[in-house]
């Protein structure tokens, strides 16, 4: 059952905080969409297609190659220290 509490719970899991206004706006919209999604209930059951075409496994040898230089990887953030990303505290 979808209600405001459920939307807040999903948002919390997805690490998004919705304002009261957003929650109020989204609830009927999401209910409408979920109701519409039910249209597929009656479709025949077949094998799943994870992709539209057949994908072949792309194996390659396990060889160490040159990867992106560390400074390139770090250039997109202000949060770095001693050549590493700096993140928020864990707890």
């Amino acid at each position: 059952m979808l209600d405001k509490d459920m939307i807040r719970k999903i948002a919390k899991n997805a690490k998004v905080e919705l304002t009261e206004e957003e929650t109020k706006e989204f609830l009927p919209q999401i209910e409408d969409v979920l109701e519409w999604f039910k249209a597929i209930e009656n479709a025949p059951d077949m094998e799943m297609s994870m992709h539209p075409i057949k994908i072949r496994d792309a194996f390659r040898d396990d060889i160490v190659e040159q990867s992106m230089p560390k400074e390139y990887a770090l250039q997109g953030t202000d949060h770095k220290k001693d050549g590493y990303f700096k993140g928020p505290r864990a707890v």
Binding site: A73, G76, F85, P88, R89, A90, V91
Partner: peptide, 18 residues
């Protein structure tokens, strides 16, 4: 954290990412 927009690193990871 690693790229794009960021904020001051306040709070724990849940609070910051949210």
């Amino acid at each position: 954290m690693r790229y794009g927009a960021n904020e001051k690193l306040d709070g724990n990871f849940n609070e910051y990412f949210t």
